[in-house]
Structure formats: structure tokens, C-alpha cells
Amino acid sequence: MSIKDDKVKYVARLARLKLTDQEVSLIARQLDGILGYVDKLNERLDISKDVPPMSHPHAASNPFREDKARPSAPSEAVLSNAPQKKGDFFKVPRIIEE
């Protein structure tokens, strides 16, 4: 499967990642090599349908803790790394058009 520049641009959009044209063509070329390598899974390995996909090394179970209120981190500390803030909030460019 060969990956084209416009596919990389499309995926970069999905990932919210700005790439230069140079980066796009470099990544397209490198992904061709990497996907060519990982295609060995499709070419050489026949997997019967009953192999369950593994997402995690241990049997999944949802750990619960007691449903009890406890203090969270102070908002001052949480906001201390914010690139921009206003009062107790993270400030970002306008999202809803007027």
C-alpha cells in the first residue's frame, strides 16, 4: 500500500498537526517504508477469526474506589502552567462565531 502526500495531509488534519510541504513528502516517503514492513502481518500471517484482540496484558476489570468526596488539586496549581488564563479558567481563542 503506497501512501501519497494528500493522504498524509488528510491524516495531519485529523491529528490537528500542521506540517510543511517538505515534512509532508518526507513523512509520506518514510511511511511507505514502515507500512511496507508492517504489511508482513497481512501477507505472511493467517489469523483465524477466533483469536481475540489483545488490548492490555491483564484481564480487564474496572477498579472502583469508594464513592466519597475528597479535595482535588487547588485550581491555582492546575492553572499555573496555562499559556493564557482568565480568572479561574484557561483562555483560548473564540470558539463560537458571533
Partner: peptide, 27 residues
């Protein structure tokens, strides 16, 4: 706008290998 902020922030902040892996992983 917000989309421009996400895309440029990430384009400027991530190095080459991080970009490659984000694209491969998203793909």
C-alpha cells in the same frame, strides 16, 4: 482561531519523530 491554535502549536512544538509517529498512529 482554535483550529489554527491546535495545528500550529503542535506543528511548532513536536519534533520530527513525534510527528512521524502521530501521523502513523492516526493513519
Amino acid at each position: 482561531n482554535i483550529l489554527d491554535m491546535y495545528e500550529r502549536t503542535r506543528g511548532e512544538g513536536f519534533g520530527a519523530e513525534a510527528k512521524r509517529r502521530i501521523i502513523l498512529g492516526t493513519y
